[in-house]
Design a protein around this nucleic acid. Structure first.
Lengths: 104, 104
DNA sequence: TTCAATAGTCCCATATTTCCGAACTATTGA
DNA sequence: TCAATAGTTCGGAAATATGGGACTATTGAA
């Protein structure tokens, strides 16, 4: 049984998306989620290993609150997915335009 | 003689641009600058008349620091221009993609 | 079972950032 | 010279972000 950690918010706002992605760490999280299989645990998607987990958890919460990711719980770890379809439906082309310029 | 209020910063960053435009008020300022002649004074570009001027000044400083606008001084007022060419050169398509979804 | 390990969340104190009133500066026009 | 206008700057209060530590949930092993 798939269990949502938090209900996916359905009112994705432009300001929310921009603010969420304005943070370099969160932008990298989204990039790695999209690149490497799209369904990573929080620690697996973390940009660096030495980041405090409470800080990391905060960043994931911001991404969830902005409607950028959806988190499900599977066993002991949380699986994160970028809500690409929802974002593209709401703001066509935006995510792609931003990620295009995120440094590799 | 044209006088730049602050030197235009030449290292426009993605995070800077996103953070600057993540604020609804600043996004509206940029929109009105682009729409209505592109060369407005600070108060003319303000989204609402009752905003404190120190707050407004802060927003313009953030936009300048992000490299989004260039401010010149002409007489008693400051003229603001969106640095469209510079932004498009640095991040092609980004500004347009964001502004496309800014509510009218 | 019970116990340890793992993955995150939650709480809260500190640090940083933003907001805005008030004082200040620069320019113009009377 | 004086008043008015347009912004900036300063500084304290309000809001937000950071991260350490305690807590929860799940799994796997003894």
């Amino acid at each position: 049984m798939v269990q949502f950690v938090h209900p996916a918010r359905d009112d994705i706002t432009l300001a929310g998306v921009l603010a969420a992605l304005a943070d370099p760490m969160r932008l990298r999280i989204v990039r790695s989620l999209l690149q490497e299989g799209d369904c990573l645990s929080c620690t697996a998607a973390a940009p660096c290993p030495d980041i405090p987990k409470s800080t990391l958890s905060n960043h994931f919460r911001v991404l969830r609150d902005a409607g950028l990711i959806q988190t499900t719980k599977k066993g002991v770890e949380h699986r994160n997915v970028v809500r690409e379809a929802d974002i593209n439906a709401r703001f066509p082309g935006l995510l792609k335009a931003i990620l295009k310029h995120a440094d590799a």
